[in-house]
Amino acid sequence: MSGNLRFLNKSITQSLCVLSRGYARRTSFPDYYQNPIFRKDEQSRLIEEGELSRRAKLPVKPPTVYESSSVYHDPLVNKVINHVMEKGKKQLARSLVEKAFENIKRKQIERYHLASSPDEKAKIELNPKDILHKAVENSKPLLQLTPIKRGGITYQVPGPITERRSLFLAIKWLLEATYEKEKQVHFPEQFAWEVLEAANNTGKVIKRKQDLHRQCEANRAYAHYRWQ
């Protein structure tokens, strides 16, 4: 349990660097080029810490189009959009995710108006981005199974999972659950539904996570294969 807590604590500190850009392949920029810092709050932090004068001398990669200092820039939302994207059609992916946000918002506002007491109203979360954050946080797995071959038999061995991979799995599962839909239902509606369910700690994605945890628990006897 304490390990879990430590893990969660770590995950919060890591979440920022996980969402920063990483490249699968080589880029045209040499290694010593720095990632751009485009958020105003981060820039002000740099100035406070006196880092700026040091960084000013280093060459910096250009920021991409989606890295803006806008008020509603959100790295996680950008990540999800990239996962939804196919064949580089980012505009389309973005419009789909935004429509899903709109659906979430309409549903929550409707719920808000239906709620009778102010207490109930205060409980309803209305910001779709917060709901997405909560949904992703809820669907992140804490353990993973790795296939390891010992004595001709492949064992599913439970082990810790990196923050980066658990984020990847959470988003992937959310989207896979969304794609399991009738043809008549459109992506934004289904995605909105799945996100709301996951934020509420119910639904397909949460079940999948719990199944994985159960499997890990069942296979704990194989855990020593990780190092033997």
Partner: peptide, 9 residues
């Protein structure tokens, strides 16, 4: 409740 967030928005 259609618009939320800081006033800079």
């Amino acid at each position: 409740l259609w618009l939320r967030g800081p006033t800079e928005i």
